[in-house]
């Protein structure tokens, strides 16, 4: 248990540093920076909803906000997808109850994993850009940014999944 906590702390800090040092400076096509840090939501073990998870997600988002001067945009979005994580997993799998003890993304079919990641990523990015512009007449810009950035983020998350599971298997 203690080791698991240590692991989470390590990933938490590592993701913040990765995001602010490298990913926020990519500027692909001029403005696309993936929000890879939300992989935390998928990394944190899927248990029954607990307050610690909500708090950690909030703090992760807030840390990113501190570095990018964006108020509470990332905190709001990350907290939101942390909260809807279990309902989304349930509805994608079509189950009313989850067996939390042996749930793992690696045991799922690839297309189900992708849809869970895609839904949560889209929701997160939409909240981020929506709150950033906070204007209805920029809706086109918000949707384009959400779509392009989401694709980038989803690809990075999938790559990290593949790398991570290979490491475990060997």
């Amino acid at each position: 248990m203690n080791r698991e906590n240590l692991n989470i702390a390590f990933v938490f800090i590592g993701l913040i540093l990765l995001q602010i040092m490298i990913l926020n400076n990519i500027n692909f096509l001029g403005y696309i920076n993936p929000f890879f840090y939300i992989v935390f939501i998928f990394y944190y073990s899927v248990k029954k909803l607990d307050s610690a998870f909500l708090l950690l997600s909030f703090l992760l988002g807030l840390a990113i906000d501190f570095f990018s001067n964006s108020g509470g945009i990332n905190a709001a979005a990350t907290l939101f997808i942390a909260y809807i994580r279990i309902p989304v997993i349930k509805s994608v799998l079509g189950k009313t109850e989850l067996e939390f003890n042996n749930f793992s993304f690696r045991k799922l079919k690839f297309n189900k994993t992708i849809s869970i990641i895609a839904i949560l990523t889209f929701v997160h990015h939409f909240i981020v850009f929506g709150l950033e512009y906070l204007k209805f007449d920029s809706i086109q810009l918000i949707v384009t940014k959400t779509f392009l950035t989401s694709i980038f983020t989803i690809i990075l998350i999938l790559i990290s999944f593949i790398l991570f599971s290979k490491k475990n298997a060997s």
């Binding site: 909500l54 909030f58 906000d65 108020g71 509470g72 945009i73 905190a75 709001a76 709150l131």
Partner: peptide, 16 residues
């Protein structure tokens, strides 16, 4: 708890 934290986040956003 979720609602409380979300309110904080939105408050920071509006302030910014």
């Amino acid at each position: 708890f979720f609602l409380l934290l979300e309110l904080f986040a939105v408050y920071f956003t509006i302030q910014s």
